[in-house]
Amino acid sequence: MKEVLIVGRKEMQEMLKTKSTLIFALFLALFFSIFPAMGISKADNPAVSLNNSVFYLSLTIGVFICYMLTGQVFFREKQEKIIETLLCAPVSLRTLWLGKVLGVALPSYSFSILSAISIILISNIFSRTFLFPSVAVILHLLIVVPLFIASVVGLMGFVQFLLGMRENRIIGLLIFVVIFGALYGGVGGIMRSDFVVSWLHVIALLTVSVLLVALTAYLARYLSKEKIVTTIS
């Protein structure tokens, strides 16, 4: 566990020292939160609209940022062959992988929380009544979002470690299109009042997150140093 924290802390330290990444993540989190939030008060049902926005945007923004950071933590380390030296250190591959997952998931989740807080604050500035997300959405934010982000980081990290550079670039581009499309296209949909976030949605997403975590843990067994090293170049 101590080694997981060492690896995770180093990944976060590296991110903090990369200003361009931080600024871009911050811009992304705020841009996709502030503009929809400004329209919440004008919606037919502002409370429903706020719930929808927090439910959807906190997750998609977190996933977008974790996609961005995963590339820097897993793919870049492999591309620059740093991973080879790291694999010679007295830590297991699983520890390294978990540490990296932690190092990406935590900052990504922080940006999710930031986007949720921004949405709540901005919507209240423009609204005459006090708006606050429902209990289901709060639990979604506190449990489902971090779990989902962690499982996505784990899965993407697994893929980036396992596949070659060219395959990784192709898959990375596809994932980018899907996430960006979901983020950009979904903003309009969530403002409509005919979609109402319920416990059912939260539980369904929680189930998906748990299944993703289980899948990632299962797939991690197939990760080996040999697979990583032989797909470096």
Partner: peptide
């Protein structure tokens, strides 16, 4: 055993941003 071994491989294995 890996604690008793030191390596410098073809790539320096250093983090440019640190």
């Amino acid at each position: 055993l890996r604690k008793r071994v030191g390596v410098v491989l073809e790539s320096d294995g250093l983090y440019d941003r640190l």
